[in-house]
Amino acid sequence: MQNRKLWNIGLLILICAMLLVGLQRIKETGREATAPGPLEAAEFQLAALYSMGQAVTSNPFQLTLKWQGEWSSLLSPEEAAGVLASRLGLPSPKAGSVQGRAVYEAKGHIEGFPAELELTNLAEGTHYAMLRLEAVGGKEAALERLQEAQRIAGESLADEGVQTDWNAAVQGVAWPAVAANGETNSGEAKLTVTFDKLEAKINQIPKLKLKQAEEFADEQTASRTYVVDAFPIAVQSGGHRVALQLAVHRNSGIGMDEITIGTPLLTVEY
């Protein structure tokens, strides 16, 4: 009788353990099922970046986004560039050369936005494709159209087999350059005041909380890199998975602070 009780207790413990394992697998599967794909992640991140541009400047801002990556293809560079340009609805590419490499460029429009395709041959059977879209931001209607253009471009490149990565940036003049509080008048101290204003405005956007990971500064220019848990597209930098970079350049000629915001990192001049 005692043995039977012990056996029943052991069976109950085993069943409970199996249930716990099953629940954990269900949770993990659910997380995998809800994880956004590259197109959805880029759409979400573009909308967040657009909101940042609206938050830090009252003026229209310049927005640049890119899909870029390697493409394995047996086509010649000229043929490969032609295939991508045709798929994207761009004119026939023109041949050029950059640092001794053949580069094919096609310029046109996608959904009304200026678009530029570049294809570079890396090695036999391997090319590198980059599609750049530009827009002037400010109104919500422009964001919706840009998201559609981004989706069409991303889908087209992926369907052809390009292993694309995504990044984007906004640039604009935020506000008149401010003086630093306290006794010091150094350029770095003044830029710190600007960064504090930037971070405060961005942190007001729902679901966006910046966690500073890295920083660089000199007299006229400074940048900070952040971890943003809400952003699915990120890159590893040091010991952090960063997803946003802010840069401020003090333009002494016009007395304004020029702001650049990139995600996951800045890939444009600032």
Rank of each mutant, 00 (worst) to 15 (best):
P60F: 02
Q220G: 03
H240W: 12
A189H: 11
E269V: 09
S97T: 07
P206V: 08
Q204E: 15
Q24M: 14
W71G: 00
G161W: 06
T126C: 10
K201E: 15
Q147A: 00
D159A: 14
K94Q: 09
T184C: 06
K197V: 11
L208S: 00
T192F: 11
A234C: 05
L143C: 06
K211G: 00
E43C: 05
L19W: 14
N59A: 15
P77W: 05
R101L: 14
W67I: 01
L191G: 12
I261D: 08
A243M: 08
A169S: 15
F113T: 00
A169H: 01
E160R: 13
V56E: 07
K201M: 12
F113D: 05
A115E: 01
T267S: 14
A230D: 14
K107E: 14
A189Y: 07
Q147T: 03
L131P: 01
G96Q: 02
Q99F: 10
G138W: 01
A48M: 14
L119A: 03
L74N: 15
G187F: 08
G37N: 13
T120G: 01
C16Q: 09
G253D: 10
L14H: 02
N181F: 12
A102F: 06
L19Y: 10
F231H: 07
A35W: 10
A129G: 04
D218S: 09
I110S: 02
A168D: 05
V173H: 05
G30T: 03
G253Y: 00
A177I: 07
L244A: 09
M52T: 08
E43V: 03
S58T: 10
A17W: 09
L74Y: 09
T192K: 12
A189M: 15
A247K: 10
G137C: 05
V193I: 04
T120W: 03
E183W: 12
Q245S: 11
Q236A: 13
L84F: 05
T126F: 10
Q150H: 09
L88G: 06
V21C: 10
A115G: 04
N167W: 13
I9S: 09
G138F: 04
A234T: 08
A42I: 00
